[in-house]
């Protein structure tokens, strides 16, 4: 497959996966999913899936919470996986390339969101004044296509087309210890994602649950699926207990009130 066709297909993929935000925030734009298709484009689905798994873990903290915007995992994930598959380098390189690309496109996306969407939003206000709800809906669709679909697809296509000839030379010039270092860093990277999540979840009285999960894996080698099930069971038991205590305390206070009446 020629590089032109590959660049086109990668652009097409990048055009389609933001449909994530058209399909109920279904997470189809996450690297674990997109890498399957990048693998398909480069004729090695298996390698694509493996790279996707590593990228996904590294980007575990890259989630939208509130209004804070994470790096653009779509362009970073797709281009990172594409360059790694093209050069035959491993997942560590996909990761190294993915982060700066994701950070770069976040800037582009922010600028476009800042400058272009308000134009459509203003038009939508105009349609609303005329009670034209179809017009309002059209502005929603136009914002999506012009800001979220087209620019990123163009960016990925061009970056791959012009970047890939030099990428091989650059990657081969990197000394062995740097390559090892990158892979060591790739192994540590999920820790950053988990730490970001812990900021949201961790309080002193719930630290023990983290320890339970850790021990289940480290000593008992329970697969993550099993750990998730055990975690859910613990949560259900706790919730039932919570509800019971609440009902009991309510009964006690009600009883107390009755005593006063007596």
């Amino acid at each position: 497959m020629g590089i032109g066709l590959q660049a086109f297909l990668l652009g097409l993929l990048t055009f389609l996966v933001p449909l994530d935000w058209w399909t109920g925030t279904s997470n189809i734009s996450r690297p674990i999913v997109t890498s399957v298709f990048v693998g398909l484009i480069f004729g090695d689905i298996r390698a694509g899936i493996i790279i996707g798994g590593v990228l996904e873990l590294a980007f575990v903290g890259a989630i939208t919470i509130g209004a804070a915007r994470p790096p653009d995992i779509i362009s970073g994930g797709i281009l990172g996986a594409a360059f790694a598959l093209m050069t035959g380098k491993g997942a560590g390189f996909a990761l190294t390339l993915a982060f700066p690309i994701a950070a770069l496109f976040l800037i582009v996306d922010n600028v476009l969101t800042l400058l272009v969407i308000p134009i459509f939003a203003k038009k939508a206000d105009g349609y609303a004044q005329k009670a034209d709800l179809k017009g309002v809906s059209r502005m929603h669709i136009l914002s999506f296509v012009t800001v979220k679909l087209l620019p990123r697809a163009l960016f990925v296509s061009l970056a791959f087309y012009f970047g890939s000839p030099i990428m091989k030379t650059i990657l081969n010039a990197i000394p062995q210890f740097v390559q090892d270092g990158i892979n060591i860093a790739a192994g540590i990277m999920p820790a950053l994602g988990f730490a970001i999540l812990l900021q949201m979840l961790l309080k002193k009285n719930v630290l023990v649950y983290l320890v339970i999960g850790f021990v289940l894996y480290s000593y008992l080698h329970v697969p993550i699926m099993g750990i998730a099930i055990i975690g859910t069971v613990i949560a259900v038991i706790l919730a039932a207990y919570d509800t019971k205590i609440e009902a009991m305390s309510k009964a006690i206070t009600d009883g107390g009130a009755n005593d006063d009446d007596f």
Binding site: G187, A191, F194, L197, Y209, G213, V215, L216, I227, A235
Partner: peptide
């Protein structure tokens, strides 16, 4: 109650994944 339950599951899984997916050798 729901929030607390969700937090518990999340933490158990993150605990497991801290062991299985972070690699420092």
């Amino acid at each position: 109650t729901l929030m607390h339950a969700a937090t518990v599951v999340g933490l158990v899984v993150i605990g497991g994944m801290s062991g299985s997916m972070v690699s420092v050798k």
